[in-house]
């Protein structure tokens, strides 16, 4: 008896299912449209990088070039100046990431695993440092970096970015370490591990996703920084990618194919890194960066 579904009920169920399908289709359509609009500026950049300058503004606009024009990429990849921008950005990005990861993880471990006199104040201090306007620091940094003899060197940039990246590393790593139960530490301590041993041998392997997302975020921060890179370096040999691109604007004026080709090449490292680990980074930003 119970197998037999009442006709009225059946039509209702079918209607409901149909409505759900329609709703889902509408959501997909809306998402596809919105995503296309939001990603369009990036697609257009790639498109322009593959067109000769004479076609940059040709009408009607074509997203897909008629023929692929690789001259912009060829020019940019063979020019030693652009190679030096890229190398500088890699050196600074990797150095800042490594340093802030080590120093930040140590501090995060202290915050996460100990209650001590002044811990709240210290934590608030770290959070506050994220809020200090970088533009306020620019002029005194200029003075300090010149005083230290680090003007127009990559060391000056590394030191500066380390200060900006450290608070984020500490807060993000602290958020991750807090999610690991303290039982892990206790078991290891009973087995004779020192606090540093607990951190390195027990916690870090578990916190690997957190380390990866913190590293990627730090690298992104250093790779994309513009203001201090502009003010604290002077010679072409010390310029990083963002400043390099901005100088092309003045230098080449209207060579959109080259500018966009270098923009694409200069964005690739962060784009690839982010796509590879975006699952971790998105989680990490919300776990550490926002929720304190």
């Amino acid at each position: 008896m119970s197998d037999i579904v009442q006709p009225a009920q059946a039509t209702q169920a079918v209607n409901e299912e149909r409505r759900r399908r329609w709703r889902q289709a509408a959501i997909y359509a809306a998402l596809a449209l919105v995503t296309f609009v939001m990603v369009f500026p990036i697609l257009w950049m790639i498109s322009v990088s593959l067109k000769p300058t004479t076609e940059t503004f040709s009408l009607p606009p074509r997203l897909l070039p008629e023929t692929f024009h690789w001259d912009g990429y060829a020019k940019v990849l063979t020019d030693p100046k652009f190679r030096s921008f890229l190398i500088n950005s890699y050196v600074v990005g990797l150095a800042v990431t490594a340093l802030s990861l080590v120093i930040g993880t140590l501090a995060a471990f202290g915050f996460s695993r100990y209650r001590f006199f002044g811990d709240r104040v210290a934590k608030l201090f770290v959070i506050t440092t994220q809020m200090v306007p970088t533009i306020t620091l620019l002029i005194p940094y200029f003075g300090v970096i010149v005083f230290l003899g680090l003007y127009d060197t990559l060391w000056g940039l590394i030191l500066t970015y380390l200060t900006f990246a450290l608070p984020y590393s500490i807060v993000m790593m602290n958020g991750y370490l807090d999610t690991i139960p303290k039982d892990f530490d206790e078991a290891a301590t009973i087995d004779g591990c020192t606090p540093l041993g607990v951190l390195v041998r027990v916690l870090l392997p578990v916190a690997l996703p957190g380390i990866i997302s913190t590293a990627v975020y730090t690298f992104l921060l250093a790779w994309n920084e513009f203001l201090f890179a502009l003010a604290l370096t002077r010679s072409m040999d010390m310029r990083t990618v963002p400043v390099g691109i901005s100088m092309m604007v003045g230098e080449f004026g209207l060579k959109w194919d080259e500018m966009m080709a270098f923009s694409v090449i200069g964005s690739l490292p962060v784009l690839i890194l982010f796509m590879l680990v975006q699952r971790f980074v998105v989680g990490g930003l919300s776990a550490g960066g926002v929720k304190g």
Binding site: Y28, L31, V34, T35, M38, V39, P41, I42, W44, M45, V48, T56, L220, W223, N224, F226, V241, P242, V243, I245, S246, V249, W256, M259, M260, S263, G266, S267, V270, L271, F274, M275, Q278, R279, V282
Partner: peptide, 26 residues
């Protein structure tokens, strides 16, 4: 699909300001 749309929609945030400015000047 959610993961795909989310990662696409995050993209504007990861480019350096110079690239963003150039894109929009264009």
């Amino acid at each position: 699909a959610r993961t795909f749309f989310r990662s696409m929609l995050i993209l504007p945030w990861i480019f350096t300001a110079v690239v963003v400015a150039l894109n929009w000047q264009l």
